[in-house]
C-alpha cells in the first residue's frame, strides 16, 4: 500500500530518538539524514525534502527542545507536524455546479490513467444519482475513442464522440452543447495524453478550456511518478490552471512521494485516488488520513 514503506522507515528512524534523555545536535543530524533518505527513496522531490529537513532541524535544535525532558519525542512531534503540513488540509470535494452540466476535464501525461479514470468517475457520480456524459477528445492515440466507449458503457454513462472529426476543441464544444440541451448533469472530457512541454498540445487544452469553461480541471498523475511529478504538475498548473489532482495506480507498492511533492509545491488538492483497473476502483482522497498513515498515528 502507498506510503507503507515510507511510514515504516520513518517510524523506525524516529524510534531511535524516542528513548534519548539528552539530544546532541549530532543525534538530530544523524536522524535527519535517515529521514532524508526515507523521503528521497519514496520519490519526494529533492527541494521539498531539503526544505523539510531544514525546517525540522531549525525547530529541533532550538533550546526549548534540546533542554526539554523528552527531546527525542519533541523532535518526532516536529517531524509529524511538518509532514502533516506538507500533506495539507482536509478532503476537498469535486465542485458540482448548481447550474448543470458540471464540466470536468481530465488532463495529464501519456498513460497516466485519464481514460480509465473518466469511466470510474462516471460510475462514481452515477451512483450519486447523476447522469454523466463522457466526451471522447483523444483523437490521436490508436483506439482511444473505442476504449472510452467501452468504459462508458461499463459505467452506464452517455458516450459522445465524432467520427472523423480530428478537432478536439470542436468535439468538446459540441459534446457540451448536447449535454446542456439534453439536460445531463455531468460532462467528463477525456483528453489525449501529452507532455507538459508540448506547446501545441497544451494550447489545444487551453482552447478547450476557453470554449467550455470546465468547473474542474483535474490533473491525472501516476503515483509511481518520480522527481518529475513536480515539473509536470507545475507546468500544467501554470499553463492551464488545474483545480485538483487525481492519483492513479495506488494499488501498486509505490511509496508515493510524488503525492506529497505535488501537494507541497502546487498547493492543489488531491481529490481522488484510483486503486485498480476496475470501474469501481476509485476512492475519495483524505489527506489527513494519509498523513496519519505515513506517521503511524
Amino acid at each position: 500500500m502507498i506510503f507503507e514503506n515510507l511510514a515504516e522507515k520513518l517510524q523506525s528512524t524516529l524510534k531511535n530518538l524516542k528513548g534519548k534523555g539528552k539530544l546532541t545536535e549530532k543525534d538530530v543530524d544523524l536522524a535527519m539524514r535517515e529521514v532524508k533518505l526515507a523521503l528521497l527513496e519514496a520519490d519526494v522531490h529533492y527541494k521539498v525534502v531539503k526544505d523539510f529537513i531544514k525546517k525540522v532541524k531549525e525547530r529541533s535544535i532550538g533550546s526549548e527542545v534540546m533542554e526539554s525532558l523528552t527531546p527525542g519525542q519533541q523532535v518526532i512531534k516536529i517531524v509529524n507536524e511538518e509532514l502533516s503540513e506538507l500533506m495539507g488540509g482536509v478532503q476537498s470535494k469535486i465542485n458540482i455546479s448548481s447550474k448543470p452540466p458540471t464540466v470536468i476535464m481530465l488532463v495529464g501525461l501519456q498513460g497516466a490513467g485519464k481514460t480509465s479514470t473518466a469511466g470510474k468517475l462516471a460510475l462514481n457520480l452515477k451512483k450519486q444519482g447523476k447522469q454523466p456524459m463522457l466526451v471522447a477528445c483523444d483523437v490521436y492515440r490508436p483506439a482511444a475513442i473505442k476504449q472510452l466507449e467501452i468504459v462508458a458503457s461499463g459505467a452506464g454513462a452517455i458516450f459522445y464522440s465524432e467520427e472523423g472529426n480530428t478537432n478536439p476543441v470542436e468535439i468538446a464544444t459540441k459534446g457540451y452543447e448536447k449535454a446542456k440541451t439534453l439536460g445531463y448533469d455531468i460532462v467528463i472530457i477525456d483528453t489525449a495524453g501529452r507532455l507538459h512541454i508540448d506547446e501545441n498540445l497544451m494550447d489545444e487544452l487551453k482552447n478547450i478550456k476557453s470554449s467550455i469553461k470546465p468547473h474542474e480541471i483535474m490533473l491525472v498523475v501516476d503515483s509511481m511518478t518520480g522527481q518529475d511529478a513536480v515539473n509536470i504538475a507545475e507546468s500544467f498548473d501554470q499553463t492551464l490552471g488545474i483545480d485538483g489532482v487525481i492519483l492513479t495506480k495506488l494499488d501498486g507498492d509505490t511509496r508515493g512521494g510524488a503525492a506529497l511533492s505535488i501537494k507541497a509545491i502546487t498547493k492543489k488538492p488531491i481529490k481522488y485516488a484510483a486503486v485498480g483497473e476496475k470501474l469501481e476502483d476509485l476512492e475519495q482522497f483524505y489527506p489527513d488520513r494519509m498523513a496519519s498513515r505515513i506517521l503511524g498515528m
Partner: peptide, 11 residues
C-alpha cells in the same frame, strides 16, 4: 519502464 517512474522501477 516509463522514464517518468521514480524509485518504484527498481521493484
Amino acid at each position: 519502464i516509463d522514464a517518468t517512474t521514480g524509485q518504484n522501477a527498481i521493484n
